[in-house]
């Protein structure tokens, strides 16, 4: 951390420490706890490898959401978007082959992102409520399109994307790493990153200083679509099917939790992609640990809800310690 300077009060130091190392500590504690509890199931290389592989599902989708929350907006529709793009792509793959299926999945998700962006900017309504409407519309379309039948994915190329390995490391991990590098460059090295932070800090000031706020917002929602598309391809590949009802169920919740747990302020204006990535891993590490330890799935559900509340409270605590008001 380059902003730990001389002259900080102990409270501010604690806040900075909480912000930068808190999350890694949480990840290590969870990993250590379950490793001691169920070492044979949990503390193994295949399990660790698989947990990171599964992290790509939430991790990649959370990239777009990180941008979105940085601008002070939300997209509730990502889970339904994942399902609709997934079933469209899978049905195409059955007829035209996996490559076309993957392309259609990506294209469909991107298009749905554009539609979200247009509605959000043109309706001038808080994004969460517009996308809440889309959450139901996309899911309904996925049901209607498939007549509520799962679309099986058997194409070898598509299956390979989510399950294959290169040099002993699963492909989804490479894909996730690539997505994060691209997103990092966009956020820190391109004007786009400055624009979204400016919009999140003060939308009106950003508009007055010449930023085309609507266009940037449309781009942000489009990027959500792009990254959800990648997630849909990998998720479909790992599951071997795109199910209109189950695919992406609760996804929006996991993704928002990852972003918030990663330290992005809900009010916009600040955030970190690295935090989102580690938080996505925290979610998967915790979920896998609970499943392996045979925790009742209903308790797991309660736990995921609590994690989000605790994450937001920790964020509040961090900003309170540093002395900023969110």
């Amino acid at each position: 951390m380059d902003d730990i300077k001389v002259g900080l009060t102990p409270k501010q130091r604690a806040g900075n420490l909480l912000g930068s190392f808190g999350l890694i500590a949480i990840l290590l504690i969870i990993f250590g706890f379950f490793s001691l509890l169920i070492p044979k199931l949990y503390f193994t290389w295949p399990n660790l490898r698989d947990m990171i592989r599964f992290s790509s599902y939430v991790g990649i989708g959370a990239i777009g959401m990180t941008f979105c929350i940085m601008t002070g907006n939300f997209d509730i529709s990502v889970g339904s978007m994942l399902a609709l793009a997934g079933v469209l792509g899978a049905s195409v793959a059955l007829k035209a082959g996996g490559i076309f299926g993957v392309i259609i999945t990506m294209a469909a998700a991107t298009l749905l992102g554009v539609i979200n962006g247009l509605f959000v900017t043109k309706l001038k309504i808080p994004a969460f409520i517009t996308t809440l409407g889309m959450y139901f519309i996309f899911r309904a379309l996925a049901y209607i399109y498939t007549n509520n039948n799962p679309q099986y994915i058997q194409d070898r190329f598509w299956i390979f994307l989510g399950n294959g390995s290169f040099l002993g490391i699963p492909l989804p991990i490479y894909i996730m790493a690539l997505c994060y590098v691209i997103a990092y460059l966009m956020l820190r090295k391109a004007p786009f990153g400055r624009y979204i932070l400016a919009i999140g800090t003060n939308s009106r000031a950003a508009a007055l200083s010449g930023i085309n706020v609507d266009n940037i917002k449309i781009l942000v929602f489009t990027l959500i679509g792009v990254f959800v598309g990648v997630s849909a391809v990998l998720n479909g590949s790992m599951l071997g099917a795109a199910n209109p009802g189950m695919m992406g169920d609760g996804y929006e919740f996991q993704v928002i939790t990852a972003v918030v747990l990663g330290g992005t302020a809900l009010t916009g204006g600040s955030g970190s992609l690295g935090g989102t990535l580690i938080a996505a891993m925290v979610i998967v590490f915790l979920k896998t640990g609970m499943s392996n330890a045979q925790v009742n799935s209903y308790w797991q559900q309660v736990a995921t809800g609590l994690v989000l509340i605790v994450a937001v409270s920790l964020n509040k605590l961090k900003f309170w310690l540093i002395g900023q008001t969110q």
Binding site: F74, F128, G250, F253, I256, V260, L266, Y298, W299, Q300, Q301, V302, T304, G305, L306, L308, I309, V312, S313, K316, Q326
Partner: peptide, 17 residues
Amino acid sequence: GISPLITTLSMQVILRG
């Protein structure tokens, strides 16, 4: 001071569970 969106969305998941 948690936003209504996050609070009630979490409450939905917790209460269902």
